[in-house]
Amino acid sequence: MLFIAILIGCILGAIVGINVPIISYSYSSYLAIAIIAALDSVFGGITGTLKGEFNFKVFISGFFCNSILSMLLTYLGNKLNVDIYLAAIVVFVGRMFINLTIIRKYYIDKWSEKYQEYKTRKANKIQEEQK
């Protein structure tokens, strides 16, 4: 259910995004960092949903605030001639990997449980047949 919704969102976004006019090259570095921030928020959201501690307000505000803040930091970095966006990327991508690990562990646990259940059921069946 969750992943079907995400998939539909992604496909619709791709269809719209292809037909939207391109932005000027000067702003593309800002958009890039905003994308990384948004990607981090989405992964965080997925993790939250799986854990059952999804907070609508935290998620939405994080999505927009992180994007805008990272863009502002990139701008500041441009003015100061320091690549601040590198720090933002390290933080966001690091968090993304942590969230990915949580998602992966969740599904591994779920599926191994299911497999165990299937195994015990099969063993029970064989026992019943033997009786």
Binding site: I6, G9, L12, V20, A34, V42
Partner: peptide
């Protein structure tokens, strides 16, 4: 959110 994100990408 994914919709917005993919548009950006």
């Amino acid at each position: 959110m994914c919709f917005i994100l993919t548009i950006g990408i």
